[in-house]
Amino acid sequence: MRATVGLILLAVIGVGVGISLLAIPFGAPKTEIGDYYIENAREDTGATNVVTSVVVGYRAFDTLGEVTVLFVAALGLGAVLATAGGKRGRSGVEPASLILSAGNIFLFPLILLFGAYIFTHGHLTPGGGFQGGAVIASAFLLVYLSSPGKRINESGASLTESVSGLVFVAIGLLGLTHGTHYFLANFLPKGALNTLFSAGIIPVIYCAIGLKVGSELAGVVDNLMEETE
């Protein structure tokens, strides 16, 4: 019964979506705002990666909201999983094999370095704070898999997260008094194109986002792995 209703609903939705898809031409230019961003992003923000200049330049306030959503989701996950008994540690986890634990010692700093490279070069090459943060969180995931007894340093993680969030908001507020006087306005020198110290506030904000996302996602994994029986 439920499967039949589901299939009928799916057929109706599928026909509608299919007809509307055939009306959208593939591979043709469509929006004018995209052309504007591509033409003017280098002069306006100083970043050579146009996607980065849209995410943290033109629409930085949007990104602040997105980071807030991620923070609230991590908070809600902790609240849903928390019980009155408190945390008891992880039981019944097998110790990892020699290859995983030995490889982790070698790989952990390299993965952290790679994540930091991704978010510091977000304005020049593909990548940015969100991708770099996810890479950093996967390094902590590797630690959890290789040595189940180890725990994330909770006060350190929450300190990193709050400080980087505060840096993001503080840079936005500084834009009100300096530069062109609006929230998240650029007040640092833009520098030469295609160099590491260019693009004004974009690398600073992306470093803050990278640290914040990395510590939040590592905290999410940590919360899910806790046994709270």
Binding site: N49, V51, T52, I118, P126, G127, G128, F130, Q131, A134, V135, S138
Partner: peptide
């Protein structure tokens, strides 16, 4: 950019 985000 999106490919990196989706993969990681």
């Amino acid at each position: 950019d999106v490919a990196m985000a989706e993969a990681s």
